[in-house]
Amino acid sequence: MSVPRADLLQGTLDLLILQTLREAPLHGWGISRRIRERSKDVLEINQGSLYPALYRLEERGLIVAEEGLSEQGRRVKVYELSAAGKRHLKNEVAGWRLFSRAVERILTPA
């Protein structure tokens, strides 16, 4: 794999997790894999920080965890976006767009 990897900016992990869960409920490993896929291997979630982030989000009520079954039929914790999480995500996405547009404008030579 020779794809150049980008480091995650501080605070973007939560955003990525929430956005991933917006599409469908997933278990922890599924989330990390989905983010890798969607970013075409550019973003690699540090898996050691994925689960603490998930627990943090659950603690804040932005996602809810339920017992579910994996494709292999194993019992796993499946995470799902809560209503509060949806609202939060909407704000975060708007904030991120604003931020990235501003940075892009600065990076683009006038």
Binding site: G30, L69, V78, A83
Partner: peptide, 23 residues
């Protein structure tokens, strides 16, 4: 990849009462 979910939790409505219930 097909996400599998066996059980779902119903979304709460918005509003103050829900906030209390939530907490």
């Amino acid at each position: 990849m097909a996400p599998v979910l066996q059980s779902r939790r119903t979304d709460p409505h918005t509003g103050l009462t829900i906030a209390i219930v939530d907490s």
